[in-house]
Design a protein around this nucleic acid. Structure first.
Lengths: 183, 183
DNA sequence: ATCGATCTGTTGATATATCAACAGATCATT
DNA sequence: AATGATCTGTTGATATATCAACAGATCGAT
């Protein structure tokens, strides 16, 4: 995601917010391209410059959100295991509308987003499994990853859908501690 | 203001908000075109497509705000004298950030905007002076208009700068009653 | 007084967004 | 089944926004 033309950024941002808003009001299948264009204050044709149809739009929106997470992976890497999660939970908080909408939406398959998010987390955890201390010598990587991944996603989901009852730092500390035990 | 290209609307809206924000932070003279472009998330060159310099920008921004008021004059015309002001005060409330910033700004001349607003109001009142009942037979139009205009603008200013302590309807009723006596 | 840094206003090539119009698809109603 | 209304995806002409680069102006610090 080097540098994108400002107009594309704005268009995508407007579309993202429009979709989030509309999905809060009706089922995704009942949302029309015209609705999205109107809400985003864009010409309908503009949408087709970037996407095939509304499903492709939703896909790519999710994709780009996941990509932002991947971007964060590169920066915060070798920090303390607890603090490493602070920026993530701050990010979740900033985009909580997106996450809560995507995690609860019924329309576009029962949370296709959840699946994508889980896959991303598992990929990210792969290189973090402790291979040295021997504590995992009897455990399969598959199992560890699935365990830690669903746990992590589950906590994120719980935190978002319950109004983010703890501050990001607290969540980062807790989740960091738990993940360190699991991996 | 028939129908404007969406892009121009968005650009102007972004610039308006950027200028409002920045004027809340520093003196207008110390604001750079680059600042405005950055805040509005626009290319600096784009500003020059529409304006000569930052002073022209401010002028035109004020101008367009006044124009919106003129647009409203056309619609709400022959209604009840009290209710006629409701949309105006709702409009003031919606744009209260603009009004409060423009009315307090020291940089661009001690409220050039106030002068423009007053001129607009006086123009609007011209056709509303009671010529029939005879109650104004001893009074000069000039004086009446200046009196009512400054009074009206003064109340708007007070209302905005004091956090809009009464709802728009209440303000419309009060101001409507007072203006009816004066004109 | 000179430097370096920033701001300014402008240019040209390019990318993107807009708008109006189109034909075909879908869907609800009659 | 026919009708009308809306949605869809696409097109072409046009308008606007972007970006990088430029030279000159301004200003503060050395």
């Amino acid at each position: 995601m080097a540098k994108m033309d400002r107009r594309i950024q704005k268009t995508q941002e407007a579309l993202k917010n429009a979709v989030i808003e509309l999905m809060g009001e009706k089922d995704f299948d009942n949302i029309t391209i015209q609705d999205i264009a109107d809400r985003a204050n864009l010409n309908r044709g503009t949408i087709y410059l970037h996407y095939q149809d509304k499903y492709d739009l939703l896909d790519k929106l999710i994709e780009s959100q996941i990509n932002e997470l991947e971007e964060m992976d590169k920066w915060a890497c070798d920090e303390d295991w607890m603090d490493a999660f602070i920026p993530y939970f701050e990010y979740f908080k900033q985009n909580h509308l997106f996450f809560s909408t995507m995690l609860t939406s019924k329309g576009a398959g029962p949370s296709y987003f959840r699946t994508r998010l889980l896959a991303h987390c598992i990929t990210g955890f792969k290189s973090e499994i402790d291979k040295e201390s021997g504590k995992n010598s009897n455990l399969k990587d598959d199992v560890i990853l699935q365990y830690a991944g669903t746990a992590y996603v589950g906590v994120i989901e719980w935190w978002i859908l319950n109004g983010m009852p703890y501050p990001p730092q607290e969540m980062a500390k807790q989740v960091g501690a738990l993940l360190e035990r699991s991996l």
